[in-house]
Design a protein around this nucleic acid. Structure first.
Length: 633
DNA sequence: ACCGAATCTGTTTTT
DNA sequence: CAGATTCGGT
């Protein structure tokens, strides 16, 4: 580590090791550098790496941080606890549950699982016409983020709306079903950690004592639960350093509370505050546009970003007739940039919603521009991937009543709806797990002979895999399950383009298992138990050549030499639902600001007069943000 | 039990 | 427009 790499403000933030520290870091001001150097500095001052905790929001940020810390401090850097909030919570919950003989082997439900479960809940309560699964899940997630569990007294006043009674019932049944499936959702991870800390003081104290130094990245995006977790953990040593930028708060819809960072100075009275305002990333002209836009935001910390970088190219606005023209225009410009010596992977295209990516895919293929889409339908959300994961979870966890139902008839084994219903009934009556009920059916011969035979075959298959799982490396085992289950065969028979794609995806999954094993030393079990926390962003895109396509939300924390921000229209950016809500509009502006500040040299904004949205042609006005940046009128 | 066709529905952003 | 769901024929 060389402290000469830092500017005066950065240096101060890195050297003030003890006590609460707030670092207000504007976009591109070397935030990550401050965090990593701080960690390195702590270690140099004799702090044991394992007594430092650094929390981030995405796995990608965590991995990057880890890498840079190791670069700075060598092998010792590996000991630092660097992880996302959710991964941290998961790790503590598993460890402590195991120690206290609580069910530690729960699975984590992803969005699709959550929605399916919620559908069941609503059906059972006959509330399908009252509220949609998505909406119900949203309210529950917000409740969890505010530490309102389904049994607490405040729950009634928390849901203050005309269907709060129903919501409470929904919440309770949803939690009951999660428990029955030995599962937790994302919100539970944080909520249950707080509950654990509250119920077992000695556990909290153990972690309080253990972590001498705590760092939090993107603090402006923390929700109440995360805020409490950090506050409690830091109570003992009071060495807490948070880094953030209220101008880049874009997750309020997920329960993030911008006040957490705005109130930090009140929470920690004697805290030191450092402002990072020197931007190292963008040209002056890009910064001017960003500043012009964000100066329209209210109640912000006054920051004045400055740079000694070059003036740079003008920021250009492109106005197009149709969305397809926009895509073509951008494609043309990308090819020009490449002629100028830019590399495809130094260029990014941002948009508000995933659905906008389609048209770029189409045009880029036509123009022979290599591209990679980040996000969208996540790799781990694809049907075939969820299927193989379900097989594996069924194999390693006999109590899993959820995933086994997903795979029992995929490929078709002649075990249909009626049979399933019977088995569920038996499971409920006898208080068996689904798997136990299956075995029971075979032993007692309660079902038609034909079906019994089919079920027996399935059980034998599972048992066989359970015997074999420890006899070979994880990726080989996955391959084995794929072929012995008949899943691969089923796809191969289809001989369609789509089926081929699916087979390729499964192959990629096998590779992912292998690389996780080789790089992180994780065994198959660990990999599976954490899989719901892995996002598309972490897939090995690596040196893949190509223009990056992604949503504005995903671009935070990244930078590119050239950036295109598309769809700057009223109703798209800002998004239509936010047009009449001041707070939401502010967040849309910040979202746009985040996108702009990713650009190092070239920034192009664009809008289209009409575009096909949800199957219809819609006519939009240019975004108000364009006026605010003074690029029009 | 299975498959394909017809019909319905719901549309942001994500750990 | 695409995905999920339902329905009807085998």
């Amino acid at each position: 580590m060389n402290l000469a790499d830092l500017n005066p403000e950065q240096l101060k933030a890195v050297q003030k090791l003890d006590g609460p520290v707030l670092v207000l870091a504007g976009a591109g001001t070397g935030k990550t550098r401050v965090i990593t150097y701080r960690i390195a500095n702590l270690i140099e001052h004799g702090v044991k790496p394992e007594r430092i905790l650094a929390v981030t929001f995405t796995n990608k940020a965590a991995d990057e941080m880890k890498e840079r810390v190791v670069q700075l401090c060598g092998w010792g850097g590996n000991g630092v606890w660097i992880s996302t909030f959710h991964a941290f919570a998961l790790k503590v919950l598993r460890t402590e549950y195991m120690k206290h003989s609580l069910p530690w082997d729960f699975t984590i439900f992803d969005e699709v699982d959550q929605k399916n479960l919620m559908k069941q809940v609503l059906k059972e309560l006959e509330l399908e016409d009252v509220i949609k699964p998505r909406a119900a899940l949203y309210y529950i997630d917000i409740a969890k983020g505010n530490l309102i569990d389904s049994e607490s007294a405040e729950i009634y006043s928390f849901f203050e709306m005309n269907f709060s009674e129903e919501l409470v019932r929904i919440y309770k049944l949803y939690q009951k079903k999660l428990r029955e499936n030995n599962a937790k959702d994302f919100g539970d991870l944080l909520l249950d950690l707080v509950i654990l800390f509250r119920e077992k003081r000695e556990i909290l104290e153990k972690y309080q004592n253990h972590f001498q130094y705590i760092l939090v990245d993107e603090y402006q995006d923390t929700n109440y639960a995360q805020y409490i977790i950090i506050k409690e953990l830091a109570k003992k040593h009071r060495n807490i350093c948070v880094v953030g930028d209220d101008d880049q708060a874009i997750y309020s819809w997920r329960g993030a509370n911008i006040q957490n960072i705005r109130n930090f100075e009140k929470d920690w009275k004697d805290c030191a505050v450092f402002h990072l305002e020197r931007n190292y990333r963008s040209t002056q002209k890009i910064l001017d546009v960003a500043t012009a836009l964000i100066s329209n935001a209210s109640r912000r910390w006054q920051k004045k970003l400055w740079t000694e970088n070059q003036t740079g190219e003008d920021v250009v606005l492109g106005v197009f007739e149709k969305d397809i023209d926009e895509a073509k225009g951008i494609a043309t410009e990308i090819l020009q940039l490449v002629d100028f010596g830019y590399d495809f992977k130094e260029i990014a295209v941002f948009y508000r919603m995933n659905s906008q990516s389609r048209i770029f895919e189409e045009i880029f293929r036509r123009y022979q521009i290599p591209y990679k889409i980040v996000g969208g339908v996540g790799f781990y959300e694809r049907k075939e991937i969820k299927d193989i994961i379900s097989y594996l979870l069924t194999i390693i966890n006999p109590k899993d009543n959820w995933h086994i139902k997903r795979v029992i008839n995929v490929p078709p084994r002649g075990i249909g709806k009626k049979t399933l219903f019977q088995i569920e009934r038996i499971a409920k009556e006898k208080n068996f797990s689904f798997y136990e009920a299956l075995k029971f059916c075979v032993e007692k011969d309660v079902l038609p002979q034909k079906t019994t035979g089919k079920i027996d075959e399935f059980i034998n298959l599972i048992e066989h895999w359970r015997d074999e799982i420890n006899n070979m490396p994880g990726f080989e085992f996955v391959q084995k399950v794929l072929s012995e289950s008949g899943y691969l065969e089923m796809l191969e028979m289809q001989e369609t383009y789509e089926a081929k794609e699916r087979i390729a995806n499964l192959q990629e999954f096998v590779n992912a298992v292998r690389s996780h094993h080789e790089e992180k030393g994780e065994d198959l079990r660990e990999f599976l138990y954490g899989i719901a926390l892995i996002s598309e962003k972490d897939l090995p895109h690596f040196d893949e050549e190509g223009v990056t396509l992604m949503t504005l939300h995903l671009c935070k924390g990244l930078e590119f030499r050239a950036v295109f921000i598309t769809g700057l229209e009223e109703g798209v950016l800002p998004y239509s639902d936010s047009l009449y809500d001041v707070e939401e509009l502010e967040e849309e502006r910040r979202l746009c600001y985040v996108g702009i500040t990713r650009a190092k040299e070239i920034l192009r904004l664009s809008c289209s007069k009409t575009r096909r949205l949800w199957g219809r042609w819609v006519y939009n006005f240019p975004s108000r943000f364009l006026k605010e940046t003074r690029l029009i009128e």
